[in-house]
Design a protein around this nucleic acid. Structure first.
Lengths: 211, 211
DNA sequence: GGTTTTCTGTCAAATAATTATCATCTTTCT
DNA sequence: AGAAAGATGATAATTATTTGACAGAAAACC
């Protein structure tokens, strides 16, 4: 509670990347790696890598480097991947359905348990093994199933109402794909994926690269 | 070429957000806004807003503030939204199809012209008005249609090969949704959307918020 | 077994980004 | 028309982040 607040978002956002590269090394049966070698692969400076990792403990050993498997597991634990989370998706349109089936989440141990929508034509359908349920039943479902996280895949205009509803149900973590910024109480975590913002940044970079 | 390099990514990534909020103000028929008012809405400090905008020119007026419509249009121009881009998607799976139909891109004037895949069961299908074509025909298509941007929605393992192919075809802008980092020549822009990284960051924040 | 090399963790320095301040110009009000 | 209030753009100060340097511990080598 004290230590975690000192860790900057810049560091936190690099952790998943370490995790991904370490998994790769593990799959290639590489046992140990130095910050310098990791630097060459991942593109951060060796100094930054050592300092980042040291925020969470001294995982390395002088003269040896880091044990790939150990570090991979430690970072997994730091990221909270040693636990299981109940996840639901709100909004079963194209994007919601795509995320429900997104195998890369499943590879990390995440699984979507249910989807909710207000469109009667969608309610009752199954996307693979995930059922689309009526939004009216969300409160009951969340409470009964101890849902941890909700993914909002609605349009911009419904997103805040949905977020309010989720907060009401006691959900403390919202992964938001709607192109809007949600207002939620301080104890609710919101992580945004603003695809349009990414696209416009991309367009800017493309445009200026041609100038 | 000189000025653009001085603008930091931190600033660039805020531009789309200004654009979004200004559009909102415009739709609410608000004619003028001060950095202080914008700060209250958008959550950046007024000082930061003024400094950000000043990187691109003095759009405001002392004693008045900013003209909403003018500023919206200017930022649109800065982002390159005054031009049209030919866009293709590689990988017509769930995510690729969802992006092909994503109305929020269309609202900003972006339109996907074609999709490519290697799966014979997908080739020939139409997702709304976007046809899925054979990957073998990509080079011909790109050259004939002057494609600007490509969106990679393949799995991790094919992504680099696809990127190589795209670079070969002369494409200079890749929006990458595959969970890997692409190696491309310096003059090719890559903007990553690493959904898994966002999810893991989210999980970390959720986990630590409960401690 | 001793010496050299490798490599971490920590601290200091440098760089980058954000916030505060203020002169100056507009607008608004009387 | 003149005074007060409001607001920018520029610069300075502060804070955050990244990079560099190095002591000391472990591994590798001979």
């Amino acid at each position: 509670m004290d230590r975690k607040n000192r860790i900057s978002m810049a560091v936190i956002r690099r952790l998943p990347k370490y995790h991904r590269y370490l998994k790769d090394l593990l799959e290639r049966d590489i046992k140990r790696i130095s910050s310098k070698e990791l630097s060459d692969i991942i593109g951060f400076t060796a100094s930054q890598i050592r300092q980042d990792l040291n925020n969470f403990g001294g995982f390395g050993q002088q003269g040896y480097g880091y044990n790939v498997e150990e570090l991979y597991k430690e970072i997994g634990k730091i990221l909270g991947l040693d636990k299981n989370y109940k996840i639901i998706i709100i909004g079963a349109g194209n994007l919601g359905q795509a995320l429900a089936n997104y195998t890369n989440f499943q590879k990390e141990g995440f699984h979507v348990d249910a989807m909710f929508d207000i469109n009667p034509r969608l309610i009752g359908l199954k996307i693979r093994d995930v059922e689309i349920m009526d939004m009216d039943n969300i409160e009951e479902y969340v409470i009964k199933n101890n849902v941890d996280m909700a993914i909002i895949c609605t349009n911009k205009d419904s997103a805040q109402d949905v977020a309010n509803k989720l907060v009401e149900c006691g959900i403390k973590a919202i992964w938001n794909f709607a192109p809007t910024d949600l207002k939620v109480p301080d104890d609710v975590i919101v992580e945004n994926v603003h695809l349009v913002e990414s696209l416009l940044t991309f367009t800017y970079l493309y445009k200026t690269s041609k100038e």
